[in-house]
Amino acid sequence: MKKLHINTSINGNSAEFLCDPDATLLSVLRDQLNLTGAKEGCGSGDCGACSVTVNGRLVASCLVLAAEVEGAEITTIEGMAEGEVLHPLQKKFLEHAALQCGVCTPGILVAAKALLEKNPDPSETEVRFWLAGNLCRCTGYDKIINAVMDAAAEMRGA
């Protein structure tokens, strides 16, 4: 398989890599670029643990080919905090104890951030449906929803 040469931007930094034509974006992020914050929970788009954004759109990176992101802007969990300053969602997840094992947490944070950028004042039901593609097996979602609602309120006030 001849490799493809891809130029893209990840978390605001230009990134260049070679990939097999059938490599997923997730595998390139994790195995080549050492961005292991996105997780492979299912490989079939059913769990959301690999969530990233491509050109501002929330996607499951296991269902995107690396070849497709030529010229695209990608953001991952590694780009969410700015230096020492956590994003309000990250802060609220800690304060509300919205994680137990934490393996779904990067995907949920990326997805929640995409929601609040689109809808700064979601209802609890809207949050629950937006995050339905992010499976969490530890928390029963309760504290996650609380954290997202609280972060949204803080961000609206800020």
Partner: peptide
């Protein structure tokens, strides 16, 4: 069809 993530594609 699918989740928010799937909707993106």
């Amino acid at each position: 069809i699918g989740s928010t993530q799937v909707q993106g594609r």
